[in-house]
Design a protein around this nucleic acid. Sequence first.
RNA 1: GUCCGCGUAGCUCAGUGGAUAGAGCAGUAGCCUUCUAAGCUAUUGGUCGCAAGUUCGAUUCUUGCCGCGGACACCA
Length: 569
Amino acid sequence: MTYFLDKAKQQIRESIAQALGREIDFNQLEITRPPDSAMGDFAVPCFYLTKLTRISPNQIAAELKNKIKLKAPLKSVQNIGPYLNFYFDDKQLAEKVIKEVTKGGEKYGSLSGDKEKVMIEYSQPNTHKEFHVGHLRNAVLGTALVNLYRFSGKKVIAANYIGDIGNHVAKCLWAYDKFHKDEPEPTEHKGQYLGKLYTDAVNLCAENEDYKKEADVVQKKLESGDKYFTVLWKKTRAWSLEEFDGIYKILGVKFDKFFYESEVEKPGKAIVADLLERKIATHSQGAVIVDLEKYNLKQFLLLKSDGSSLYSTKELALAKLKFEKYKVDASYVVVDARQSFYFQQFFKTLELIGFKKKTEHIAYEFVTLPEGAMSSRKGNVVLFEDLLKEATDLAASETTKRHTDWPAKELEIAAQKIALAAIKFAMLKTGRNNVITFELKEALAFDGFTGPYLQYTVSRINSILKKETAKNLTNVNFGQLVNHKEKELLVLLAQFSGVTKTAALTFEPSQLAQYLFEVAKAFSSYYQEIPILAAEPKTKEARLALIATVRQILVNGLSLLGIETLERM
RNA sequence: GUCCGCGUAGCUCAGUGGAUAGAGCAGUAGCCUUCUAAGCUAUUGGUCGCAAGUUCGAUUCUUGCCGCGGACACCA
């Protein structure tokens, strides 16, 4: 799919090559936006041309300005210093952009034809632990990445890899068995209940060496198929999975495939045995390691000295499974940046084994609290459920202030949508490399650069379009859209597809978030100044078509970020 | 100690090898008989951590230093 802006940019490049009378590397010839829209719609800095011709950038810009022959939709070109600034024909711009967005609808901006099949693994919660805002960032980021990748035309398998076994499970079950097995079973929030037990267990084991040993014995028993603990494990594991399922439903987070650590534990151990045989792995202090010293990656631990498995043991088998069974071309794993070193070791190990497939760690920084890191041990984690409740209550009270007459059901649905938008957007609006210091006040903000502001913008457009819409675009006179704010909006809208593509390739949904905010601001300013329904019929028709286009872009973009919009708010 | 990330306005963050470094929040001053004020307009606020180097040109690239956060074998 080639959109209007791509074609226009290509025309700019070709017109320059033609005027110059020689071939140029179009990849080197960048097309940017001037600092002020009055200076042009798009700009070409001429420094690259100077390299080719040895004529000063200012001079070559001046010469080319007179030689360039423009075709629609481009109207004119100006040279300002070392820049060639191009202007669109307003009517053409409006007509092309509005028509292609209208035609594309919810698919507008998407690309197709890419044959690559990738797996994006994310979320990876641990059973028997609590689901907090740290996990939330991963789930929200992963969802956005899956959406963006699909939008840019790739086949994506969204995968979850649930940590349903391991030392944390053993600790939780040890605590359950030792202190709680005679209690009545919890009837709700069973996952959270287990999380609490786990926290207690961590503290107890830290204080008491004997307790830690007991918990380790539980892990050994689990791995050797002990009946009692296996039954207990299956039951409690289901409690956690049920909780995750509920959270994913609320979040609108979906997976095509669930992997469980429990299913790759044995195959993982088999791989480790094979690596020992092949002398890629060796024994060290009773444990199994891969020596990566010569790559400056220390030693990579594959098996504990008591023979039980580690994360790495299982991940070896998982990597194999992904490529062999699911035949993906690339595997992306969305995991906290604190695991970067581990992944370097892991990828190097795969390389030594002879694995040639593309695997990449999509690292993001963690979520912390103003008073320091969240930790189950300190009991200062912010649970997703608590955060959602707080946000929903606030959204409900804000909505009630504005609409005293809304039916209870609509109020309830709206409050949750607004709350989720606020929370998700807060997680997505900054780049992956930023540590998010979680502050409730900020997560619950509904104005400025927030999800609710974007939803509000859509609702305002809805409110107009509910009264009247442009019936048939063939009769619309696009020449009516001459206001500079209309022009600004159109140029912005035309960039949507490019933004989503870059956001996908760089694994940075924040770029889309920033862009959508710009669109919303441009619309709000326009909305304030320019009457739509009260305009002359012809003008009104064109403006209605324009704002429907703005809505489509905002809805499409928000949906990629996993954020729903509301009919009214 | 080694490695990774970050350091831009009071706070939270965009941004770019080149045209006057931008937003949001907070502050100040305005705007609701007119399409939803979760909004808009104006305005205050910056030696882009410090130093050197590469370059016609560095906040952006390189190196060193400083500060903050993180990782560095039996957790995941």
